[in-house]
Design a protein around this nucleic acid. Structure first.
Lengths: 234, 234
DNA sequence: CTTGACACCGAACATTTGTTCTGTTATTAT
DNA sequence: ATAATAACAGAACAAATGTTCGGTGTCAAG
């Protein structure tokens, strides 16, 4: 009887390590010839031989007659990979591009995007760490607006600031919301309180007085502010 | 002139979605023909046409004359996507953890960290997209402070806001800097101007008056503000 | 010494695959 | 109505790519 294979040989390990490195750098697996080139195996049939063994040992799956048809399942140190991108998707969802859909100015109702963002230009999104955004909020409910003019200073928001909004038309007490006031033809950002049938709109600047609205029906909530970003380098 | 492309068309999105799904199920990208088969595009040259556009818009990279030579970078909802093993590296490049080193309050000189951040606990960093930070600035010159108290409202900065600072002890005109005023025992954030031998410290709130300092030597610049972040969900 | 299994190999071939070429059609501005 | 451009298409071709075939060499068991 010949010698019996016990686990991974040095050549197995070399192939697996090369697979991991190549995949992480390129986003797709190497070809049989590329594996051979980088592991000093001169024959495609030997690479094929070893890949089949790694498949038997559940380090990878192969799809036959498919170029680069290798799905890496385990690394050379035995760590499981479910597949190429499932692990990464969890990581890379940490950085989100929030669509910048327009400007917010006092004298106009602010733009609220349609549901599908079909006009959306990805180059104009604002990159935001997921950890700065409210947990549990769906990303597709978020959009960004750039502040235009000095009219939001009572909200402690400057001309040029970015506000990240969540779509909503209902406010809870203590939330900062964008409100269109019908009687004044004005958009404003304020903390919202509904008290005894009246609406109190509290400026962010604590030295300023609130607006009291006796008739809540003239208050149109257009969105909730979840984040303000001010870049000072521009 | 014909119609102009604005962002992703439905076919772009369909292709991206298929790429994501295929990649997550198979561990390798689809071929041109597989993409066509699943997106009702009958011609390999049209698939090629759309893939080239997605590459131009930085949703993916293509390697030419390589089978399945597609490296998916962004998903159809704009989330950044990277490969398994360099996900952390790429996130480090695009998503930065700026060390949160303490609080800034008016009555104290603000903390300025030592050069090496040897005490730095990465779990207490603030995650910031690299694209929001000044280009060219070294990340190790940046640190974050949390604002404590209402004393910064003239800088349009609220209690609880995060300011990202760059280490510097020199200010250029128009930059917002953190300044320790010796004669007042006070830290303040203001736009700095040196005019005719005097320092003008201009509040961010345009309705407020500047401070004029005749003797520039009592002005200690402790850092430059590069970003302000206000989270409203907490 | 013989045998069987494993490791290893080059070459040939078929299939897969991406690019290029040469168009047509649709859309929009002029 | 015309022109310019984008979107779309089929076919051809070359290159990339995986599988198969027919071997050789090594080693351990009998």
């Amino acid at each position: 009887m010949a010698r019996r294979r016990t686990g991974l040989s040095p050549r197995h390990k070399k192939i697996l390590t090369f697979l991991e490195t190549f995949l992480s750098e390129h986003g797709y697996p190497p070809s049989i010839r590329e594996i051979g080139d980088h592991t000093q195996i001169s024959s495609t049939s030997v690479v094929n031989y070893y890949l089949n063994q790694l498949a038997e040992m559940n380090y990878l799956e192969r799809d036959s007659n498919v170029s680069r048809g290798i799905n890496l399942l385990k690394t050379s140190n035995g760590s499981l990979l479910q597949n190429v991108n499932n692990a990464v998707t969890n990581l890379t969802e940490q950085l989100v591009s929030v669509p910048l859909v327009g400007n917010i100015v006092a004298g106009e109702p602010m733009p609220v995007p349609a549901s599908d963002f079909s006009y959306y230009d990805p180059d104009s999104g604002i990159d935001v760490a997921r950890s700065l955004l409210p947990a549990g909020d769906r990303l597709e409910d978020l959009y960004a607006l750039r502040v235009h003019g000095d009219s939001m200073i009572d909200a402690m928001v400057n001309d040029g600031d970015i506000v990240v909004m969540k779509k909503t038309n209902q406010a809870r007490n203590g939330e900062m919301v964008a409100i269109w006031l019908n009687d004044r033809d004005e958009t404003t950002l304020k903390y919202f309180y509904l008290e005894n049938g009246q609406v109190r709109l509290q400026p962010a600047n604590p030295t300023m007085k609130p607006i009291i609205i006796n008739d809540p029906s003239i208050v149109e909530v257009q969105g909730k502010v979840v984040l303000v970003i001010r870049r000072l380098d521009q």
